[in-house]
Amino acid sequence: MITINVVMALTVGVLYGVGFTLLLSRSLMRVLIGVVVLGHGTNLLLQLAGGPPGRPPIVGTAPPESFADPLPQALALTAIVITFALTTFLLALGYRAFVLVGHDEVQDDVEDRRIARQKVPSAPLESGDGSDDAEQDLERADDEVEAEAARGRDRS
């Protein structure tokens, strides 16, 4: 077991808190910053997992008992590389969303929208093609979908 100092524990806590808060936002840019901050927090935690700071772990430069643990450093380096790659990917994705959709916000949950759209909460699940039509194209405006649903009900 390793004890860590309080300042570092608080720092990790703040980084996690900020990261998770940003992850909860809708804009992909904020999510991206959240991922970066969270990544920093995780890497710091990895470093702390290796114990107190020490001399560079190179044989012959210092007595072995004063070495820092090199393994967490290697793990953190790998994690940094991966976070770097994913950050660039998210940047590209956010830009693409911005170009194609006009914003970079995460969409509503499809089921939530369906439920919100239902006028009668006790509508039967198998109510024919009318209400089910609604889910085919969720990008359409709500009133358009409702008009279609009304048409479907007329048909059946």
Binding site: M1, I2, G19, L23, L28, V31, V35, L38, G39, T42, L45, L46, L48, A49, G50, L71, P72, L75, A79, I82, L86, F89, L90, L93, R96, A97, L100, V101, D104, E105, V106, Q107, E139
Partner: peptide, 29 residues
């Protein structure tokens, strides 16, 4: 129409990956 779906997937997967890394740090500690 499909890019927001990809964004959801990427965000959720990234979150679980960072949690995985946290778990590894705790296991190592």
């Amino acid at each position: 129409s499909r890019i927001p779906a990809g964004m959801t997937y990427v965000t959720v997967s990234l979150l679980s990956s960072l949690l995985f890394l946290t778990a590894i740090a705790l296991v190592y500690a």
